[in-house]
Amino acid sequence: MEKTEAVVLHTYNLTESSKIVVLLTPYRGKVRAVAKGVRRTKSKFGSALEPITHVEAEIYFKDGRDLQNLSQAETLDAFPSIRSDLTRLGLASLICELMEQFAQEDEDSSALFALLLIALKTLASTTKNYASLLISFYLRLLDVSGLLPEINHCVRCRRGIEGHAYLEASAGGALCGGCSGGAGEKVYAGSLKIMQRLLTCDWTMLDRTRIAQPSADEILRALNTYIIHHTGRELRSARFLRSLPKLDRE
């Protein structure tokens, strides 16, 4: 039996009373576990096993088993401000979905776990400039996973980028107009500068970093394509975010 901190990334109903819970843990990476009886009204810890919850969980690990057994969970942070706002909930879902795709089972994931936690905590206290937060999260996730695109100069000719560039996943970064041959997602040099800044800036600065909508759209489109190239999967939460009408999107 192991007691571990974790964030609930996703849950699936298994039987009438049980759930499969996908967790990100700092030292065991992504863990899939069965939580028995948690769908019952009288379950003592069912509420802790909702997606986007920071918990302390007790898990019975057995090597070689695909599904572990979760016997107890206590909420450390349920991020109520994320749950009470559809845009924030959509963004938090996107963050958790990306973590589920990038995290591996049975490996130290302390850097990913720390990134997930700070991204959720920042989102919980942010009321505007969500695009800056999301771009920063994308870039740091790629960085921690060793997939950060080269955005400082052309990945092929190594020259600085002027005007516009093309972010090309198979090349591993930005290509200048001369090297790209038209492949990749077009981004302006100014957008690359914004990306460089958002990769390293302090998390507390993000809600004060406003990016013009066309630049934010351009960067997010390029990064989405870049990530899908690596994961091979469309992001379901991104589809949800697009389906929201003009509610309170910043």
Partner: peptide, 11 residues
Amino acid sequence: SISPLDGIGPD
């Protein structure tokens, strides 16, 4: 129900 993580939106 709406489920962002499963791509189920209002429509």
